[in-house]
Design a binder for these strands. Structure first.
Lengths: 153, 153
DNA sequence: TCTTGACCTAAAGTATACTTGAACAAATAG
DNA sequence: CTATTTGTTCAAGTATACTTTAGGTCAAGA
């Protein structure tokens, strides 16, 4: 028989499709806050499952865990995001998506204009000399030196 | 006086704005193929500078090093990408960008429709049940287990 | 001659998002 | 009561894209 005060990590895993390790990781990252039973095992309530669903959906929308955490920490702990919460959050996500789409479109258009050019010059290329580079897909530091190239090529 | 057969790594660094370490890394990754002089130092020719410019521009367009390498290895080594090469490559990049833009737009539209919903259900949410998730921005393995969630939440 | 600067290699560090492994405790099934 | 399953912690591994550090070589200038 199930003790009905809290779900085990295995049950949450089955309900969300997340690996146990991912769930523990998300706790470590402060996205959920399960409590412990008397023997030290994690117990989750349904709010945690909803928070995890939210995490997965937001990741699908392309947000990082830290962006997601930022939204979640605006909610009182252990509370399920309500319809109103979700409406507010999704509007904010929408703006971000819009921005990203606009950037990529601008880039695409410039690429369009550069197809016949082929200059590939760091000094002149409009594709290079842009401040709105596409969001990088990898991680790690870039241009830490802060130097600008010597533009004579 | 400069020996005029090949640029040193420092000169390439100044011309491209890349750190020495990045240039060495790109060599390791097979994006450029400098040769060595009699004392074992790298020597680059102008084709390498162009290849590096291409790498930087393509990264700005959001492509990974392995995608970039894929394009570059189609070119004869030590050869500068020509106007025709660039035209072909940029058309291919353009298709990729178009695809990415279309995906994000579809996502944005669905988000639009979900703003008033707030169900966040893994079983029913149209935002979750999509095959065209946004390209992830972080790295590392995801869903290695290959399991699908148990959809009863 | 000594020092400085540019170069070299190899290994380890950084950030993100997790997984995997080792070693052990507790709950459940037969 | 024992075997299996489920859970726990902590450290290390994976992929991307590099940087940083340590330790050493080589050539030119004071």
């Amino acid at each position: 028989m199930l003790k009905r005060n809290g779900l085990s990590i295995g049950q949450v895993s089955k309900r969300t499709g997340l690996a146990d390790s991912a769930i523990r990781f998300y706790e470590e990252q402060g996205l959920i806050h399960p409590w412990r039973n008397d023997t030290g095992q994690r117990r989750f309530d349904r709010a945690d499952v909803r928070r995890l669903s939210f995490v997965m959906i937001a990741q699908g929308l392309g947000f990082t865990l830290s962006e997601i955490r930022a939204e979640l920490t605006k909610l009182p702990e252990h509370r399920t995001p309500t319809k109103a919460d979700w409406s507010r959050i999704s509007r904010s996500f929408q703006k971000d998506l819009d921005r990203r789409i606009a950037q990529m479109q601008a880039l695409r258009d410039r690429l369009d204009g550069c197809i016949g050019c082929g200059c590939l010059s760091l000094a002149k290329c409009r594709l290079y000399n842009q401040d709105d580079r596409a969001a990088r897909r990898g991680a790690g530091p870039r241009f830490l030196m802060g130097d600008t190239p010597e533009l004579n090529e």
